[in-house]
Structures are given as structure tokens and as C-alpha cells.
């Protein structure tokens, strides 16, 4: 019997070790920090270049689209994101952000956003499809869609 238990224990520990090892290695590249603007900006140096999800609010009237040489509008967006909601008395830290692509319907002034991407010396560079926005005024509606998705 003892022989059998040793075998089982050995197999189990090898499996667990292999699994943990794989999990560890994939988690290191698979995870991203989830940070608020205020947590990142004061130590901008330290966070530069790290993959993260940045949470904040779009600064009102800051969304602009670049035009190309012939004056036609493009999919390049630049905008600013602040730490606190737009109606708060103090906006908190503000960061410049850029994005190329289609933005969600809910991406607009004052919207609560989560941006996937990296902080660079020129501001926050958002990944393709990296803009997630919550609707600013219609909290109820947003909650409903969450429920229905269950």
C-alpha cells in the first residue's frame, strides 16, 4: 500500500508543480495593472512602459481628432483623462491620451473610461480596441445591460 501512496503523491506533486509553473509563467505576461490616474502620474517614471488598464474620466471638451494633410478627418484621437469625475470640485491628476481606431458609443465628454495600454513620455498610448467606456448619466441603464448579460 505504501508503495501506491508514494506513486500517487509523486504524480500529484509533479502535476501541481507543472501547473503552478505554467500558471506563473503565463500570468507574468498575461496580467496587467489596474490603476487610477492618481496612482500612476505622481510616479510617472516608474510606470512608464508597463502594460496596464488606466481608470479615469474624460476631461470635458478634450476629445480631438487629427486631420490628415488634405484636411480630412482621421481615426486618430487625442484626449485628456482625469482622476476624478468631471463634476467633482478637484479633477485630480490629468494625463494626455491617444488612440487610433473606432471608439465605443459611450466614449464622450465626462465618460468614465478604462484604457488598456502603456504610459509613454508623450502621454498614455492606448492599444487597439483598448477603450472601454461606461455611460456617464445612465447608470441604471448600464446596470440593466449587465444583468441581462448574466
Amino acid at each position: 500500500m505504501a508503495h501506491r501512496y508514494i506513486k500517487i503523491t509523486l504524480t500529484a506533486s509533479v502535476l501541481v508543480l507543472a501547473f503552478t509553473g505554467m500558471l506563473w509563467s503565463t500570468l507574468r505576461e498575461g496580467t496587467e495593472y489596474y490603476k487610477n490616474v492618481d496612482e500612476v502620474l505622481p510616479q510617472a517614471q516608474q510606470w512608464t512602459g508597463k502594460q496596464m488598464q488606466l481608470h479615469g474620466y474624460v476631461v470635458p471638451k478634450s476629445i480631438k481628432r487629427r486631420r490628415d494633410a488634405s484636411g480630412n478627418i482621421t481615426l486618430d484621437y487625442i484626449f485628456k483623462v482625469q482622476n476624478n469625475p468631471a463634476r467633482a470640485s478637484d479633477p485630480g491628476n490629468v494625463v494626455d491620451a491617444s488612440y487610433n481606431g473606432i471608439v465605443p458609443d459611450t466614449f464622450k465628454d465626462e465618460a468614465e473610461v478604462v484604457l488598456k495600454g502603456k504610459l509613454t513620455p508623450d502621454g498614455f498610448k492606448t492599444d487597439p480596441n483598448g477603450v472601454m467606456a461606461k455611460c456617464p448619466s445612465k447608470y441604471e441603464a448600464a446596470e440593466k445591460s449587465a444583468l441581462a448579460g448574466t
Binding site: T26, G30, T31, E32, K35
Partner: peptide
């Protein structure tokens, strides 16, 4: 104390 998230790619990989 740090909020870390995993992306869809992580799920797909596994």
C-alpha cells in the same frame, strides 16, 4: 493590494 487584471488572451492561451 494591487489590482491586477488578466486579459482575454490569457484565458485563450489556457
Amino acid at each position: 493590494g494591487e489590482r491586477l487584471t488578466v486579459a482575454g488572451a490569457f484565458f485563450n492561451k489556457w
